[in-house]
Amino acid sequence: MWAFLQKHSSPKYFYNLSGYLIPWFGWICLAFMLEGLFFSLFASPPDYQQGESVRIMYVHVPAAWMSLFIYMVMAIAAGIGLIWRIKLAEVIAASSAPIGASFTFLALATGSLWGKPMWGTWWVWDARLTSELILLFLYLGIIALNSAIEDKRTASRASAVLALVGIVNIPIIHYSVEWWNTLHQGSSVTQMITEFKAPTIDISMLIPLLLMAVAFKLFYALVVLMRARGEILERERNTRWVQELVSHQPVK
């Protein structure tokens, strides 16, 4: 088991495997994205209260889900890298941070665009918006720490500690902000999971939403593989296999 993991998590093996996987992820992601966009923009009904602007939800909600999901992935990868010193886990954690920050920003930006017609302002100091904003700050701190430390492996370990401190703090921040102020509507989908109720969202809206969520997940997998490849080449630039790969000839 350990030998299997060692072999499959070696940067060289991962580089080749990800090169093979990327087209697959790319095409499947494109298929889901097109289908999700078709359903969400054309084949789903406008909301009886919110009208056409409800369509922002199909980008906003999956982006918000991704922002937390990527933080979890990043923190777990960072923890694995910190404990077992697996290079691949450090690379995944380092490449996930900017993607997570982008999704968080996307969720905030689309939320702001949605808020203007619905609540009448671009921004409210509501609990969910605020915790999303703080999540963005956490991501930016990790990215800044990653780039401030010269040595890549030290940088990975330092930001791993920060990511783990963040993961302890996220629920605390979430609930503290929740009790502080709430205006945002409750989640219709988690309600279904936690309370075993039929979702308060109609099935014609749930389908495009879930399609988009899958598309976003695949998009993340695609981009993280691409970033990780670049990161691996940079980190392993002094090894023989990278030099052979780059110069297209055997290195003595």
Partner: peptide, 17 residues
């Protein structure tokens, strides 16, 4: 400056309560 970026978000729950 980096320190403030790392630490201030973690201070928010204390500030709120």
């Amino acid at each position: 400056v980096l320190l403030s970026l790392l630490v201030l978000p973690l201070y928010i729950p204390v500030l709120i309560f």
